[in-house]
Structure formats: structure tokens, C-alpha cells
Design a protein around this nucleic acid. Structure first.
Length: 287
DNA sequence: AAAACCCACAACCGCGTTCTA
DNA sequence: GTAGAACGCGGTTGTGGGTTT
């Protein structure tokens, strides 16, 4: 009946990942490709005693090639704010418009920076009309608990859509052609740089890890030498593609057909070749 | 110098959905 | 068709580093 069990909870390691574990995971994915997470812990042998869920998370959030880390740009910030206004806290959907960022990253950034920023803004403009002014951000959240008259809500949403359109156009026009073309095309399944990019991710993580370790202790043996050589060796190879960054919205979704759908069409060019019906379906289900 | 506090972010948890035997 | 596990997502927590007192 059903699928076999995921992984026995006993002996499953938790907490921060070490570079060794990262290497193990990446080399596994290099050989077998991303997906089938259930098989990862068993196939990597005793070296990786992580549950499949943890492996998937580690890969999608940190090791996957093409992930951009560091400070968010103003354009990214704008995008997030407007998409959050349109989509609510659907971080995965929002992340699909920022292919270099993960949903976790965006979620964290929202919770730590943008939420505060917006709160300050709204506090400052609280005195003014909540929905009437042209610059007032209204209908801000899909999940807003404040009830609104239908017509009013639609007008607000329409305004948000217009704002989002502008922000998206700005963001798109300001992108440099090289990086944006990479983004639009995603990671080609056979792109030779794919694994290299992944090892770059690990190298970055390793650097940070080494710094931390240096601070803590100077006497412990570090994995740096073995891992770096392993990485440079592996970098010449090519791995299976990462899970395609999702792009999901379907024409005619209820409630979004005439309003929110507009910016998504605008963005469709971003992601040609990335259509992932599974996620589209999943998004439909949420509506 | 040390304690207290704050902040950022990586990772975990729980739940709904999807998949498969 | 059904049961049960995997998968994916959003919310939350834990931890480590930085700053302030």
C-alpha cells in the first residue's frame, strides 16, 4: 500500500549543514540529478544522515546553482513588495519572479526588513485616506482581515496591479542583458557551468564556514583541503538540471482573470521554457 | 570586559496536496 | 478507489554574530 516510508527518524542528523555534507549532497545530485529526495540519504551512504526533506531544502535554498545571495537590490525589493500585495504570502509564487532568490530568502527578507519598512510607512500615512489617495497602498494583502466593499477592493487591487506593472517594467528594463538572459533561460539541462555554479555556492559557504571555525578554534582539523580538491575535480563534470524555477499562473484563474493576471503576462517572457504544469496546477488549487 | 539585547538567517515543523502501489 | 508516504509550501523557531549598555 502506498509508498515506502520516507526515512526512519532515528539517527537522522539535524541542525546546520557542514561542508562535508554539502559536498556529499552535491556529488549525489551530480550523479543522479535533483529529485527523488527519498533516495538521497540512503544512496550517499553513511556520510549523509539527513532526512530527505532536509536534503531537498538544503539543495533548493543554498546549493542549487544560480542562487544569488547578499543584499536585495531596490528593484528586487520593489518587486517583492508589489508581488506580496498581489499574491499575499505566497512566497514560492513570488520567488518565481525572482529566479535567483529562494522563497525562504524572500520570506526572511520580508519578515525582517520589508514588513518593518512598510509598517513605518503606513504608520506615517495612517492619517491620510486609507484607500482613496493615489499613492496610498491599499488592498495591500490578499489575506487582509479588513473587510472591504467589493467595488472598493477591486479598485484597490487594480491600483496595485498598475503599480506592480510599473515596478516590473522598471525592474526588467534595468536588468543587464547578460544576467537577465541567463535568468530568462534558466539553467539549461546541459549547461556546463551548472555544477561549477553549484560548487561556487559551496565555496562561498565554505569560506564563511572556515571563517567561523577559525574564530572558534585554530587547532581543529578542517575539511578545506580535501573538499576543495574534491570540488575542483567535480567541477569539470556536469550535473543534472536543478528543479526548474517555477512559473505559475494560468489564464482565467478565478478572481485574477481581469486584474492580477496582467503583470504575469508581462513576465511570461522571463520564463519561456520553464513552464511547470505541476506547480501551475498547485497554484490553481490554492484558488 | 562582560552581560544583555537585537537582528538576520538557516533550518525545522506542521499541514495540505500529490503521487504511487 | 484507497491508504499512506513523499513532496512542497508557509509559518515559526533556534542560533550565532553584532551592537549596546
Amino acid at each position: 500500500m502506498g509508498r515506502p516510508p520516507c526515512c526512519d527518524k532515528d539517527g537522522v542528523k539535524k541542525g546546520p549543514w557542514t561542508p562535508e555534507e554539502d559536498i556529499l549532497l552535491v556529488s549525489y545530485i551530480q550523479q543522479h540529478g535533483a529529485g527523488n529526495w527519498r533516495a538521497v540519504p540512503t544512496n550517499t551512504g553513511i556520510g549523509l544522515s539527513r532526512c530527505s526533506k532536509s536534503c531537498r531544502l538544503r539543495w533548493t535554498n543554498y546549493l542549487r546553482p544560480g542562487i544569488k545571495r547578499g543584499a536585495f537590490t531596490e528593484q528586487e525589493e520593489k518587486l517583492i513588495v508589489h508581488l506580496q500585495a498581489l499574491l499575499g504570502n505566497r512566497w514560492a509564487a513570488i520567488a518565481s519572479y525572482l529566479p535567483e532568490r529562494t522563497d525562504n530568502d524572500i520570506k526572511n527578507y520580508w519578515n525582517t526588513h520589508l514588513k518593518k519598512k512598510l509598517r513605518n510607512k503606513t504608520e506615517a500615512s495612517e492619517v491620510t485616506d486609507r484607500c482613496g489617495g493615489a499613492t496610498t497602498r491599499c488592498g495591500s494583502s490578499v489575506s487582509s482581515s479588513v473587510p472591504k466593499a467589493k467595488g472598493q477592493w477591486e479598485r484597490c487591487l487594480q491600483m496595485d496591479v498598475e503599480m506592480a506593472k510599473r515596478a516590473l517594467s522598471e525592474a526588467l528594463s534595468m536588468e543587464d542583458p547578460v544576467s537577465s538572459s541567463t535568468i530568462r533561460r534558466g539553467n539549461s539541462p546541459l549547461a556546463p557551468s551548472t555544477y561549477a555554479a553549484s560548487t561556487e555556492n559551496i565555496s562561498r559557504l565554505l569560506e564563511g564556514w572556515m571563517k567561523k571555525k577559525k574564530k572558534k578554534t585554530t587547532s581543529t582539523t578542517s575539511p578545506a583541503t580535501s573538499t576543495s580538491s574534491q570540488m575542483s575535480m567535480s567541477a569539470s563534470n556536469c550535473i543534472a538540471p536543478p528543479p526548474p524555477t517555477m512559473f505559475g499562473f494560468e489564464e482565467g484563474s478565478p478572481e485574477t482573470t481581469t486584474t492580477a493576471a496582467a503583470p504575469f503576462h508581462l513576465l511570461e517572457s522571463w520564463s519561456h521554457g520553464w513552464h511547470e504544469t505541476k506547480r501551475i496546477k498547485s497554484f490553481e488549487c490554492h484558488h
